[in-house]
Write a protein that binds this DNA or RNA. Structure first.
Lengths: 199, 199, 199, 199
DNA sequence: TCCTAAGCGAGACGGTACGTCTTGTCTTCCA
DNA sequence: TGGAAGACAAGACGTACCGTCTCGCTTAGGA
């Protein structure tokens, strides 16, 4: 068989494309990148690109899968650890805030102006949250709120906060913004809408 | 003065373009629409389009401003009516759910695949929520959660729920999905994440 | 009746357009001028332009008719003056060279890059030369060379020399270049092609 | 090397474009042709056109270069052949008249209405004549008539005669009109202006 | 060691949207 | 009522990017 070394070649090409995409995101932001840009920067023929991926989004998606792994790992750890459930909930929040701070330029390239890239992250996050609910809540979500609605609610709120935080320069530290997000998610937003919240 | 009748001509052209855009959204979805499509369908020269708008988004934005008016009116009414504050909160929710149901095809054309159109609605909604907070909360958002973060949280969550609801065919009636959204927003999501919620 | 004053208005508009055209030729050259340019510079509506002329060329042509008059006058004078015929021949040559030098910027604007404007002058010149031949030659051009061919030959040669002269900055004085042109026309070009001319 | 086959593809595309241009000239005349027309007729993408040529004129110019070769070849032959110099002069004349008659539709498409195409031929012809003068005349053009002026004179006269001849249907045979042109060029026009030619 | 199939670069190609430009017509107002 | 203003349809322009394709070169396994 001719596979092994060919696979190695293929893997190398793909890795190059991923790295190039990331570095271009830092420079121009995701939306502004052209497939030609990627190929030129990676010293790769255009036909080669299309031999591996069908589009820029395809490349992006496959490159960002490791983020999903980071989140799932963290979640598994949390579930395996005994302790208060409410402390374990929404576990992805701090993890992702910290990941974003650690790769701040990358994340800002993703949220800047664009929306396609956000969609990819959003989808990963949805999977994670869906898993969490499935793992913790064994009833059919109390009071007949469909589980998926809850998932969308949480992810939508989180993505919005994350985007806002990055756009503002990620000024409050991850732990701080994580605390705020969790507060809103657990206590509800009412106390923050009207000053005279419930006692 | 030469204005009035010219204004009338101009107004007619613009109205035609808006209507054409809307009908095309129903057919193809916002993202798939080309400026050429609009001009052809509206029997308008391409140069005429650019004489009035700088882009498809520009046309969209100017056409959707009346949605802002609907929301602001409803909000003003609510504030002027005496009653329990918590019932007045998040007043846009039901209004927009109903608007979406009434113009279901239009809204589905907007959320389908696309993100630009959503951005426009999101921005309008942000303004509305920001106003609501400014009107009701006179303290600097309790516990130092920046107001803008709350705005983004609420709007992000709402947009996600709205999108999900439309994608699913707007099955539960507006009042129902509105109730669910408000429940999550006011009570927090915790009870719906873990089964062991409040008694 | 309101005619006279209207006529005066019309004449004024036409004069304005002519002057504007000429001044634009100086600035940009004939070819580069747009009908919009003319209207803007003349403070005239586009529809007004089309009410008077059908095209830029139409305006040009009607404005340049006075050049024809200059040439015809000079020719009439020459024919009325007794003297050697060969001195009278090609009488337009010096006249036009001098006219070109006197309105050097205008003429350069006409020949620069373009060909349409040249066509107009060429046609006027053809008429003049045709008249000259008709006046002097009463036989059917000796040896059966069609008169019109001679006309085209002379005008073609002259226009080429004129253009070249203007492109080179009209350096030799009109009398000098006139002398050269007449020499070539009367003696033939052979002595200037091969050094060993006929004995 | 990867060149040969690519060159072959490129050459084929360019040849197609040239042929298409020529056939369109027959149908519509040069000026009326649009780049879109060419691409449509040639089954070629507009971008492909621009990958090879910058404009219609560019395509024309490169396609007409072979005409230059025809003329230069003929000239070289003439210079290499011993014989009377005056018979060799203006050698391009008959060659081009015959070429025009052989490709009558093409040439009429070129001179009809247009001027840009004529400019291209004019330039080629100028080069040829300039070469001829440089080859035969080794003195600084007798009597200080600048060589370039002679070139312009001859080419201008010739182009005018050629255009007139084609517009009239190329009725006299090439040899005949060639004879007339040479007569005017060598003997001068005077005998044909005044009826009583020199005794 | 050579052979053969693949991965690969290079880039030509058809297609299509873009935003700009100019033209000539048509409608409306004003003096 | 005729001239001025300018909105409009039409469509060419040159640019950009896309996704497909056809080439040969390179290269590394199996014969």
């Amino acid at each position: 068989m001719t596979k092994p070394s060919i696979d190695r070649r293929v893997a190398r090409t793909r890795a190059t494309l991923h790295q190039t995409l990331m570095s271009l995101i830092l420079k121009q932001g995701y939306e502004a990148i052209t497939i030609r840009d990627i190929c030129d920067a990676a010293n790769v023929g255009r036909s080669t690109f299309y031999a591996h991926y069908t589009s820029k989004e395809d490349l992006m998606r496959s490159g960002i899968e490791n983020l999903r792994q980071v989140l799932l790992d963290r979640q598994r750890d949390a579930l395996a650890t005994p302790g208060d459930r409410s402390h374990r909930s929404l576990g992805f929040s701090l993890t992702l805030f910290e990941h974003a701070r650690d790769h701040i330029d990358l994340h800002r390239g993703l949220v800047g102006g664009g929306t396609v890239a956000l969609g990819i992250i959003r989808q990963i996050l949805s999977d994670v949250v869906r898993d969490e609910i499935a793992a913790t809540g064994d009833k059919k979500s109390s009071d007949a709120i469909p589980r998926e609605l809850v998932v969308q609610y949480v992810v939508g709120a989180y993505m919005a906060v994350l985007t806002w935080w990055l756009d503002r320069g990620a000024k409050p530290p991850p732990t701080e913004v994580d605390r705020m997000f969790r507060r809103l998610a657990t206590d509800g937003v009412l106390p923050h809408l009207a000053e005279g919240g419930s006692p």
